[in-house]
Structures are given as C-alpha cells and as structure tokens.
Design a binder for these strands. Structure first.
Ligand code: MN
Ligand code: MN
Ligand code: ZN
Ligand code: ZN
Lengths: 140, 140
DNA sequence: TAATCAATTGAGAATTTGTCTCAATTGATC
DNA sequence: GATCAATTGAGACAAATTCTCAATTGATTA
C-alpha cells in the first residue's frame, strides 16, 4: 500500500482487494482464484485488472509468481523468503523454515551491484508418499 | 535418455529433439520456443508432444519449469542446482555459482522423508542497471 | 469543496496457450 | 519380420491472457 503510493500509483478499490487477497498468509493462488476472492471483497473487480495488478505488484517486488506442480502460475507474497519442498510427481508443496540463504545476500549484492529484496529456495524430488506408491520412478 | 529408458518409456525422435533443446546449456525456453527449436531438429514434432514431453521430463525430475520475468513458464535442466539473481523490473536473470543449499539437504531429507534431487535458489530485487535508470522504484 | 486530468477501470473481443481426441505410426521385444 | 502397447500429430476444443476503448475515478490543485 505505502509502496504503491510512494511509487506514484493510485490506490484503488480493486488494487486494494487484490493486495489483500494475495498477501493473506500461506496462500499460493492462481489468477483466477485471486479474481474470485477479490470480487468477494470488491464485486466490480475485472479480470484484466487482476492481471495488471499482479504484474505491477511483481514489478514492485511485493508479490512473486511461482510455477510449481502441474498447472499455471501461482502468486505469493515476496517479502522475506519462501522455502519449498516440491514433489516432482504429485506436485505437493511443503514449506519449511530454517534457511541459510540470507548469509549469501551481502556478498551477492557487493559482487553484482544487485539490490536483493527477497528469495525463493526450492528443493525438488519425491515426497514420502510418492516414494511408497511409485518406487519405480523415485528409484532409478 | 537413460533415465527415460530405465523408467520404461520409449525413445522417439520428438522426445530426443525436445530433450536436446531443453538441456542445451544456459537456456530458459518457453514451450513455444522449444517447439520451434525441436522442429528445427525433427520437423514433424507436434505441439502436443512438446507439452507431453515437458510434463514427462518434469515428472522424472530431468527438467523444471520456472516462472521468471514477465511472461509464461520457462524450462531448464533440473540436474544439480540453479542459482539466479532475478530483476523484478526488467526480468533479467543472472546465474551465479557458489551455493550453500546442499548443506541443508541431509537434514530436510531426514525430517520430511523427502528424496531431494535438485534445487533452485533465486534472489529477487533490482539489477544495477535498473537501479540507475529507475531509482524511484528501487528506492522506496 | 469543486474543478481538472492523467491514471485506471471493466466489458468484451481477440489472441495465445494448453489440452484432448483418435486414427495412423512406430519403438521395443521376441 | 511379426506383434502390440506406447506414442504421435492434426486439428478441434478449452482455458488463460492480453488488448481496446469509452467511461470512471483518485489525487492534486485552486
Ligand atoms: Mn509457500
Ligand atoms: Mn539458469
Ligand atoms: Zn509426491
Ligand atoms: Zn533490471
């Protein structure tokens, strides 16, 4: 909200709604779900505006699209870090906490002149359940 | 290739083509680009087959979709790790080498019964160039 | 508070992506 | 070389995303 205003963008009802929805804790929502939930808050919200707002928020580093599991992109808050264990078979995503990435930020910023705002650390493999049900694949 | 055969799948010309294209070093290609390049190798390659092959390769943990920059999903080889610095403004992706993620694998595997095959570590923020050209946004 | 105006919006059309179907083909095994 | 389930591609279909443009509105100013 403040970030938006500071960057010179207007605060409008549909933008408020989209932001509220996407920043709700623990959500990994696709654009359609975001549209639905935003309309529950501000009924007039249009589809195009949802896409436009997601793009804007991404640009401002407030949300981030992640592509995981079978289908389309999903959006999560960018702030801080996200740490996922992703199953390549069933697409299940498990969050975990402790993360060792912050220790690298300073050096990367110095080396590349990059200003880091957040990160995403994902491990890919096979979840406990898929290892049981489909050992042939997990094995090889 | 061996992974495919071991998992009981046939080795076919379009599959070969898609694999060759996606595994080419440094490529982050979307399905359409993959189709184009695969057709340069094996002209008959069809769109549906590209999608089917990408899904299969993802399932086998050979490639991984990532969602970076403005538009749709992009595919990269999964093997080992990928380490990206992603600019939220211009979408530029810079690779870097040293990574501290491997040190976490053992513990996560033990804790979640998960079999880890690879990882993706991405830092988001603003690249040196965008910090210069659009200080208003990078600032706030 | 009222006027101003560039930014923003939403409906629907248009386009782009991704999925499905099914008859024809083919890789692997024998 | 014969066999057969797996795979393929064309094109229909469906879903996701972007575009267009007239109408509206948030923020700033008088
Ligand atoms: Mn998460
Ligand atoms: Mn890369
Ligand atoms: Zn699983
Ligand atoms: Zn940049």
């Amino acid at each position: 909200m403040l970030r938006l205003r500071n960057a010179g963008y207007k605060i409008t009802p549909p933008r408020r709604a989209v932001i509220e929805v996407v920043l709700r804790e623990g959500e990994h929502l696709d654009p359609n779900e975001i549209l639905q939930q935003a309309q529950a808050i501000y009924p007039h919200t249009g589809r195009a505006t949802v896409y436009r707002t997601l793009e804007l928020l991404t640009t401002l580093g407030i949300v981030r699209p992640i592509y995981v599991g079978e289908h389309g992109p999903t959006y999560i808050r960018a702030e801080g870090g996200h740490h996922h264990l992703v199953c390549s078979l069933c697409g299940a995503v498990t969050d975990f906490d402790q993360c060792v990435a912050d220790s690298m930020e300073r050096e990367l910023e110095a080396r590349f002149g990059f200003q880091i705002r957040s990160h995403l650390l994902e491990f890919y493999g096979y979840c406990a359940r898929c290892r049981q049900t489909q050992p042939e694949i997990a094995a090889n």
